[in-house]
Write a protein that binds this DNA or RNA. Structure first.
Lengths: 149, 149
DNA sequence: TGTAATTGCATAGCACGCTATATGAGTGCT
DNA sequence: AGCACTCATATAGCGTGCTATGCAATTACA
């Protein structure tokens, strides 16, 4: 028996491959967004706010499927960068409503273009139908993993 | 024009979906490995060492496609946990050879079983052929992104 | 109404990825 | 031999994810 007889096969491990792919996406998106002063953690939050401004942290946490402290920290960095402001919710003394600044709004077109460029390069070898199928497959995995154990 | 007319579609953004999927994998693998005292960053390094022990940091960095300081930090944590030792390379005074401890070796079967369980759950809705195709597609994306721009 | 449970957010602290930079050992060239 | 260059590793510092925990505001209910 050789060492490889007992070894886990990385090339057929979904988790291993997914992690590698995600790091490659993150590296490229980070490089694309850096000149705009946006970090990769801020981008999903910005997408939500560009779609609908003035949400609470709770609403964003649910939409993004990240933990609340993760978002709280990200929002603090975004506030320091001048992308958003936090305003007390007039109807709930516990809540903060998150609003884009003019600067935050102004970055939408350029940031989305750069993210699209990364996606395009990643799927450059895929036909339209292959791309659709691949994205649907990812959706199936996400659904399977979000289902209760 | 409504807000959504100008918004990026998250459900068809490969990067967005890949990031989400990778976080779900990471959460589950972390939960599975935590009782073994292994972090998710250590697991890929362990896979390499289980396959072939006594490699240099440089060799591991290349195999794992992570940056050298990332691995150096991970190895330091693994050393503190008693999973590996660093021994000076007798032939190159700059290099360290990384060796598994008995404890590091002993964790292989259980850790691989837990990682396999995560993969199985993630792809539970896939037929064998769908699974093969999906993993190949991920490989295609990885290749596309690793290609020089 | 008053107390307990829940909810929204912040903070502390850690893992793991990254870039930038330092240091010491090998290599190569004159 | 001496000097510059490259290579292997370490360290500093930061972003983004996580869990655990604390606090203040709201809600629920006896």
């Amino acid at each position: 028996m050789t060492a490889s007889d007992t070894s886990f096969d990385r090339d057929t491990s979904a988790g291993y491959l997914v992690n590698h792919m995600a790091r490659l996406f993150a590296r490229e998106l980070e490089a694309g967004l850096k000149p705009l002063g946006i970090g990769i953690g801020m981008f999903p939050a910005l997408l939500q706010l560009w779609e609908k401004d003035g949400r609470t942290q709770r609403e964003l946490v649910t939409a993004l499927d990240i933990e609340q402290p993760t978002l709280a920290n990200t929002l603090t960095r975004m506030e320091k960068k001048g992308l958003i402001t936090r305003k007390p919710d007039p109807e709930d003394g516990r809540a903060q409503r998150i609003h884009l600044t003019d600067r935050g709004r102004a970055l939408q077109a350029e940031a989305e273009a750069r993210a699209t460029a990364v996606n395009t390069r990643a799927l450059s070898g895929f036909s339209e139908s292959e791309k659709d199928r691949f994205l649907k497959d990812i959706g199936r995995v996400i659904d399977a993993m979000k289902a209760p154990t």
